[in-house]
Design a protein around this nucleic acid. Structure first.
Ligand SMILES: Nc1ccn([C@H]2C[C@H](O)[C@@H](COP(=O)(O)OP(=O)(O)OP(=O)(O)O)O2)c(=O)n1
Ligand SMILES: [Mg+2]
Ligand SMILES: [Mg+2]
Length: 1138
DNA sequence: TCGGTTTCCAAG
DNA sequence: CATCGCTTGGAAACCGA
């Protein structure tokens, strides 16, 4: 099936835009005669329940029966379809809902997937490919004939041309993969002119004899392992020498195969390692011990509860609130059994208890503080000591880290326990719960951080489990960092690594000290620091010191627990016995690979990899990783923690913001997912606001239950073993608007087609970040993009709301589909006899609209492919990348590179209030954390720092939408605003429209293979009469739409623009492309109507302006319509243009 | 070969 | 009952042209 899928996507790729649209259209057409029959047979998808489900509709029996009626109607309509077999099969597979009264069926999803998937397995595609294939062969033959003809007429001397007609490749079927030289078109030409067959798709039936390619990715290597794969030179040489040369001389694959091992290896990691720890040391624990285990673990477990109250020294209110919430939670739990991500407060609850979340937030906060300090220092004293530091001197790095931090800290809540004697671990649960930190007593048994409790208990049955105490962790850490800050003047850099660890550059501190001197100096320093921190926190830290970061980290390994170590002489020798895993950046994966390379199953030591050459390591691990391995093994590390003071943000500024949840993800319906995505968007929004940034790129990452993984993973509400899918989209403009983000996320989710019940994890990442300050500055000039975003957003929301709320409305559309289909069909046929007068509604149907309805009901596999294809062409409406690119006039301008979006003039008084409301509701977790923080560094950031200024930075389109209309009116009435649009955007758009026409002219010539173009020019053949040779109808539509949307508020289109459109239409008519004219015109009218609806709710002033614009549009269209009608009359065609 | 996107890995 | 498997960044792999 994977192969089939590849073929299908390459089929999709092979279509030009018009063809692709036609194809998608055809999926909804019961009697498309223009397109391969296979397409018509796909029509059955219309009736699937997916549309309803995917839009979150609880379908009513009435509606469903309507669907059924449609089905039978369609089936009977096309009973003459030559591919009736398929149809019957489809009809059989149509589920007869036994209990139509049940609005939601979860298994529905399953069934639909299976039946539709298998149904669509391949029969249909194969048929299509076959037809396509035949067509290609026919074209090839025609070209050969034409070429022969050409030679004859031109009396071409055969000697001057290496391309001779011959039969060299008579027995060959050639397929080209990827980029080649000569190009695929050239190879195509060469092959068919020399007797060979050329195929564009690798179907099973028409297996190629040879595959031509220059470079193979590992994956393709596996895919093509049964083919003869040769370099392009083979073709050229064969022709030059006039005979078929041995392909083996041109093979591209050496006999070595790396691919497989990696694959297996990847399958092995993850959960299994947790379940069955294969650890060195004491593993011999009998099951008979388990009785004791229970006793031991129950006893200490009760202790944390007794001592919960002492924590409440901070912000009593918060604690009380939290307890209240917890009570509610418990109450709700008892009712609904479980709190998973469906619960509205899940995020808050989850993050409040997630250690990893805390670690991440802490780390980010520390980094931010650090960055601010740097900036402050820099502006305070330009002649900083850092500039005078000697670079040639070897640096000295100190690594300070708390010993088993969580364990130690939690243990302080339990005076009866001895951290040095009792085996202690911090964890939530009893069995499949992670151990965040275990003390060194437990580690002697082989217990490790990150291990599951069950695994740890096997190693250390007496393990004592303690609760988390995030508040105290933070407190101790603050003591730690505050203490270190007293060394600010002495140390070069104090770089925060995490809540419990720092890297310190003490090069200057150690300056002017000889070796002996240096050792005592460092010993004193370490002793002092360790003593002081212990006094402050009652927690022990260890310190490692050496000449670079790598060695410092290795040194601390030796120092722990509760010690320090200065690794200074005989370095290469003394690091030999470290495990590979001790090297920073070398984890389980690399270690596994090394162990297979070395055929060594136990611990890999540094000395083991000294034998590998640098080049060997690079070929195995890649450029950087290989080099790093090689150098690390020799104690070499050029990682610097020195800050580039001229541009601190380059190193320290964050590059992405994300919200991940891979726990508790259990959804049944699309509604659940949509709601959750919205909540994620809001969470993201609140983080963005508090950071004062916006982002341009959004990525949705989904974890899906792996095929072989159990539905219920070992860990309660855990994710289990998963496969992952990423999908990203460029928003075109920076935003922090949760409405925009949420809509985009929903759209992305629909693209990746992970069944809702298989979902185990969701994460959202925003990248291409920009400071909100910078955006505000260019605000005035750049309102248009914002306007577009808003419209896009509205449109998307409208689609959702539309189907969700207004069931009545959706029904006519569904019912209309047969009617509309005939309308569309006539467009393609241009057959007057078939034409009938259509009600206006159906006439205004459009690919972008109908098809989404139909599209949503397609089988997931199909949907995915088509979506991908659409998006990769930038055709999908919810991926407005091209539009924003093309219509953004200031793009690329160095200073104002931030083009504006959501910011409104800051004199709008009411907005900030609104912002705060949103802010509060949206980010409770974060807020709470901040409040609780006993940090004394809460003072407002220095003026120089460009972050912050939350209240002002939060104008965005979601806010605009909900602003009182009076304010919105002010915005939209703003004359300057409109002028700007005219000035900055309309003209470029008009230019663009003109170039579009030019481009389409060019494209006509180059749209297919070169030989076809030649073929066409000599003999205007009818080959393409049914195809639309003019490029990119959707692109044009896209431009049309933005043109319409921007021009409506300006009381209609500019005259020149209309003229351009008219010329374009006439050009199309010249090419006898009435079809496209009609499509475009229909589209314009449809957009106008849609815009009309969009503004329906607005107040009267704005309303009248809009109406005026729309009216002007209709007026402006009249001449164009006239042109078309005239053309129709001239050609004896009736049209239904009104 | 190049640039954009997706996948993988690591760390705390 | 359980359990709270995040977040960021770098690098490799992939992919299309
Ligand atoms: N997989 C992990 C790793 C760490 N942590 C938390 C708990 C640790 O206490 C804290 C600090 O991480 P360290 O790597 O510093 O580990 P410890 O401080 O626990 O032990 P060590 O003595 O090795 O530093 O981060 C966690 O929750 N999960
Ligand atoms: Mg530690
Ligand atoms: Mg640490």
């Amino acid at each position: 099936m994977g192969n089939d899928r590849d073929q299908y996507s390459s089929f999709l790729r092979s279509l030009d835009n018009s063809e692709l649209i036609q194809y998608i259209n055809s999926l909804s057409q019961s009697q498309s005669s223009q397109l391969p029959p296979v397409l018509a047979s796909s029509r059955q998808q219309i009736i699937g329940p997916t549309t309803l489900e995917s839009e979150g509709i609880t379908s009513t029996p009435i509606k469903r029966s309507n669907h059924k009626r449609d089905t039978s109607q369609n089936a009977s309509l096309i009973s003459s379809d030559p591919f009736n077999d398929d149809l019957d099969e489809n009809d059989i597979s149509v589920r007869v809902p036994a209990n139509e009264d049940e609005p939601e069926e979860e298994d529905n999803e399953d069934e639909k997937d299976n039946t539709v998937g298998s149904l669509h397995g391949f029969g249909d595609y194969a048929t299509y490919f076959h037809n396509k294939h035949l067509k290609q062969q026919k074209l090839d033959q025609e070209y050969i004939n034409w070429d022969a003809e050409r030679r004859k007429t031109l009396n071409l001397s055969t000697t001057s041309n290496t391309v001779l007609s011959s039969t060299i490749f008579e027995s060959c079927i050639i397929f080209v993969n990827g980029h080649t030289n000569p190009s695929i078109n050239e190879i195509h030409r060469l092959v068919i002119l020399n007797g060979g067959k050329f195929i564009s798709y690798l179907t099973k039936k028409s297996a190629a004899t040879h595959i031509i390619c220059s470079r193979l990715t590992p994956r393709k290597k596996i895919e093509f392992r049964n083919y003869k794969i040769v370099k392009p030179e083979w073709i050229v040489d064969c022709i030059n020498q006039g005979k078929l040369l041995d392909w083996k001389l041109y093979r591209i694959i050496e006999d070595i195969d790396y691919g497989q091992k990696r694959l297996n290896f990847n399958n092995n990691d993850d959960d299994d390692s947790n379940d069955d720890p294969i650890l060195p040391g004491q593993q011999v624990v009998n099951d008979s011990d388990s009785d004791e285990v229970d006793e031991n673990q129950m006893l200490p477990l009760t202790q944390p509860d007794e001592e919960k109250e002492p924590n409440s020294q901070f912000s009593l209110q918060d604690i009380n609130e939290e307890e209240q919430k917890d009570m509610e939670k418990v109450f709700e739990n008892s009712n609904s059994k479980s709190v998973d991500a469906k619960h509205p407060d899940f995020l808050k609850h989850f993050f409040a208890n997630s250690r990893l979340h805390h670690l991440s937030v802490w780390k980010a906060d520390l980094r931010l503080k650090f960055l601010r300090k740097i900036i402050k220092d820099q502006s305070n004293s330009m002649t900083s000591k850092h500039n005078t530091k000697k670079n040639n001197k070897r640096s000295i790095i100190m690594h300070i880290d708390f010993d088993c931090f969580f364990a130690t800290a939690s243990c302080l809540n339990h005076p009866k326990l001895d951290i040095n004697k009792d085996p202690i671990a911090v964890t939530h649960g009893l069995r499949t719960s992670d151990i965040a930190s275990c003390n060194y007593v437990a580690r002697k048994f082989g217990v490790k951080n990150g291990m599951w409790v069950t695994g740890a208990l096997k190693l250390c049955p007496n393990l004592i489990k303690l609760d988390y105490d995030f508040v105290n962790y933070e407190k101790y850490s603050n003591e730690f960092y505050n203490y270190l800050s007293t060394y600010n003047d002495k140390f070069d850099t104090i770089f925060p690594v995490s809540i419990d660890e720092v890297l310190v550059d003490i090069t200057s501190y150690c300056e002017d000290h000889d070796d002996d001197d240096l050792q005592t100096l460092i010993a004193d320093l370490c002793t002092t620091i360790r003593r002081d921190i212990f006094q402050l926190t009652k927690c022990t830290v260890s310190i490692g010191v050496s000449y670079n970061v790598l060695l410092a980290k290795l040194a601390i390994k030796k120092a722990k627990p509760d010690g320090y170590y200065f690794l200074h002489d005989n370095i290469e020798e003394s690091i030999k016995s470290f495990s590979i895993k001790d090297l920073p950046g070398i984890g389980g994966s690399i270690m596994e690979k090394l162990s297979t390379m070395l055929q060594k199953s136990d611990r890999i030591l540094i000395e083991d990899i000294l034998s590998f050459s640098k080049s060997r390591l690079i070929t195995e691990f890649g450029d950087k990783t290989g080099t790093k391995l090689y150098q690390f093994a020799r104690g070499i590390d050029d990682t610097s923690i020195q800050i580039d003071y001229s541009n601190p943000e380059a190193v320290l500024g964050r590059k992405s913001v994300s919200v991940d949840v891979n726990y508790g993800i259990r959804f049944e319906t699309f509604d659940h997912v949509d709601d959750f995505l919205m909540r994620l968007a809001k969470e993201l929004y609140s983080r963005l606001v508090s950071l004062g940034i916006c982002g341009t790129n959004i990525t949705l990452r989904l974890a899906r239950r792996a095929p072989n993984a159990p539905v219920y993973p070992p860990k309660y509400l855990g994710m289990g073993y998963c496969t992952y899918v990423n999908k990203s989209s460029r928003l075109g403009v920076p935003t922090n608007d949760w409405g925009v983000i949420g809509s985009e996320l929903k759209a992305l989710f629909r693209m990746v087609t992970v069944p809702v019940h298989e979902l185990r994890g969701v994460s959202v990442t925003l990248t291409k970040l920009q400071d909100i300050e910078g955006l505000k500055n260019s605000n005035r000039q750049m309102r248009l993009p914002f306007n577009q975003i808003k419209l896009d957003d509205q449109k998307q929301n409208q689609r959702q709301e539309f189907s969700k709320v207004e069931k009545v409305k959706i029904q006519p559309i569904t019912k209309l589909s047969p009617t509309k289909n005939t309308a569309t069909t006539t467009l393609f046929n241009l057959s007057p006899s078939k034409r009938q007068k259509q009600p206006k509604v159906s006439f205004l149907e459009d690919v972008n609209n109908i098809d989404w309805e139909v599209f949503d009901s397609l089988p997931l596999s199909l949907k995915q492919e088509i979506k991908q294809e659409l998006q990769s062409r930038g055709l999908v409406s919810y991926s407005p990348v091209k539009k924003s690119r093309s219509s953004s006039p200031i793009k690329g301008n160095g200073i104002t590179k931030a083009y504006m979006q959501q910011l409104l003039p800051s004199q709008l008084g009411a907005a900030p209030k609104y912002v705060r409301v949103i802010d509060k509701g949206v980010s409770p977790t974060r807020k709470r954390l901040k409040l609780k923080s006993p940090s004394p560094q809460k003072d407002p950031p220095p003026k120089q720092v460009s972050f912050q200024d939350e209240s002002e930075g939060s104008y965005d389109s979601s806010i605009l939408r909900e602003l009182p209309s009076s304010i919105r009116e002010d915005v939209l009435k703003d004359l300057e605003y409109k002028k700007k649009i005219k000035k900055f955007d309309l003209k470029p758009l008009r230019q663009k429209f003109n170039t579009k026409i030019e481009k389409s002219e060019v494209k006509i010539k180059s749209i297919n293979f070169e030989f076809i173009k030649q073929c066409k020019s000599i003999n205007p053949s009818p080959i393409f009469i049914n195809q639309d040779p003019i490029t990119n109808i959707i692109e044009i539509k896209r431009d049309l739409k933005s043109w319409i949307q921007t021009s409506i508020p300006q009381q209609g289109p500019h005259e020149e623009d209309i003229n351009a459109l008219k010329e374009y239409i006439m050009l199309l008519l010249d090419q006898k492309n009435l079809t496209k004219c009609l499509i475009l015109l229909e589209y314009i009218e449809r957009v106008l109507i849609a815009e009309n609806i969009n503004f329906e709710v607005n107040d009267s002033v704005e309303r009248s302006s809009i109406e005026e614009g729309i009216k002007d549009w209709y007026t402006s269209l009249l001449p164009i319509k006239h042109v078309i009608i005239q053309y129709s009359k001239d050609n004896n065609l009736q049209e239904t243009l009104q």
